[in-house]
Design a binder for these strands. Structure first.
Lengths: 262, 262
DNA sequence: AGAGCTCTTGTACGGTGTACGAGACCTGGT
DNA sequence: ACCAGGTCTCGTACACCGTACAAGAGCTCT
């Protein structure tokens, strides 16, 4: 077991997944174990949000004192890393295998990834902060990697294609989920919250002056469909763009193979 | 002026930019003003990172007590919002206007945006959390919007094209900057840190077993070029994919205009 | 001189993560 | 039966955080 203070001294090894550690078993008086701790954290994170999770509250939820948790875990960050990897397990890799070709596979992966980010609003901020090399996260990465390989793109182009697609999904899911979180905090539906925000904008002379023209677009967008429809549609369109782009790059490589490419 | 407790009661209005507030002037004994506070925060954030910035430390840096800051600002979050918008100002919009066509404009905007995220590692986590509707952020948004309009893409496709490009940049910049931050914390160069991480991977039998094949790719990638070259190249390739994708969508719309599109 | 505004400070409250040491419980060896 | 040693839980304490509140300092205007 590694104390938090020691962990900080060697940040290169600062992921739970890079420490060889014994899983400490849960036969104790309180019936605690790491799985129960992680499951409870996920529940609380989903309900209350990242900033509201504290060791003391989590412990209370489990009928235990804060310091008991430290028997199973070195730091609070560890709990978050475990929780994140557990959530990565929600991505249905079997369904991806069943898809017809790489285009559908990318769409499925992207959609599932996005859903995961939106369902668990604390994931986006956390995912940017930790290494994400737990077993489930790696399985997802591997699947993404294999899928991109199927496109026929040359080896040195694959990482950028992966980036283009999945960093987009990360960014999109982040915005979408933060928007949902804000709406929820304000006690409104997303549509109400959107209208409210646009109005706040319109009431501010400095802002409306600067973005003249933008307001009409905002209005137009929600006049026909609800926000959730728009989120889905925009996401689908963006994936169209990305897939079309990959196809073009593959075709260009076929025309001018290896090195002869300008 | 709005107390933090009151602000929390109405989260829909929870951005500095949506409060009409007087800028309180800095003729006081300590020579403080909001610009000085924001500038100092940015300096400290760049040097020490988001988690290390506290009101007490910031105040000490300015030769003042923590509570003095609250004369100019309602909450710590306000400072972050101001700092973020100030940093958005680093994106050189004039240079974008000088570019030849929308392709170059997108490239320039994307590159500048990415550079900003990497230079200020605290931006990514913060940007996901606040509304980002300060004057500079809005000017950038407007420019992005205008640029996408130039592509000729139909109105309802534009938001998704904007998303595809700039959410990708956000995600990419986030990863790149977090990687840099971790390397710096470990006291290594990025290349050293990368080799070190890959080795940590290789030493872990569970991981290497699972991602068999991945290791070779990782090795191959850094055997020729340094990481910073790879970051640049992958980013450029990904933009190629995105721009090619947009071109395809524009062409498809030209073939099968309005509504006749399946 | 005194009123009033602008700005700064000291003190205090309720929270946080977690280090440390004392104890409770169970198990196996004698 | 006893006790040593591991496994697990807890109480206390420390340093730090954001910030509410009220008292005061300094300046300007009447």
């Amino acid at each position: 077991m590694v104390k938090a203070a020691d962990r900080a001294k060697n940040p290169a090894r600062s992921s739970v997944w890079l420490e060889k550690r014994a899983t400490r078993g849960g036969g104790g008086p309180a019936g605690l174990d790491r799985d129960r701790i992680v499951a409870a954290s996920i529940r609380m994170l989903d309900e209350e949000g990242l900033s509201k999770l504290s060791m003391r509250k989590l412990a209370t939820e489990l009928g235990v004192t804060a310091m008991s948790l430290y028997w199973y875990v070195d730091t609070k960050d560890d709990i978050l890393e475990y929780a994140m990897d557990s959530v990565y397990g929600e991505i249905d890799l079997a369904a991806v295998d069943a898809a017809a070709d790489w285009r559908d596979r990318i769409r499925l992966l992207a959609l599932d990834y996005r859903r995961m980010l939106v369902r668990h609003g604390w994931m986006s901020p956390s995912a940017g902060q930790y290494l994400n090399i737990g077993p489930n996260a790696i399985a997802v990465g591997q699947k993404i990697h294999d899928t991109v390989a199927e496109t026929g793109l040359s080896l040195d182009r694959r990482p950028s294609a992966m980036s283009a697609v999945f960093q987009f999904v990360y960014g999109y899911g982040t915005i979408e989920s933060q928007f949902g979180r804000r709406a929820a905090e304000a006690g409104m539906s997303q549509d109400e919250f959107y209208v409210d925000s646009v109005n706040a904008f319109r009431d501010d002379p400095d802002l409306t002056e600067q973005v003249e023209g933008l307001k009409e677009i905002l209005d137009e967008r929600t006049s026909h469909d609800s926000l959730s429809v728009i989120w889905d549609r925009d996401f689908g369109y963006a994936l169209d763009v990305l897939i079309a782009g990959i196809e073009v790059m593959v075709a260009r490589e076929a025309e001018a193979p290896d090195g002869t490419r300008k």
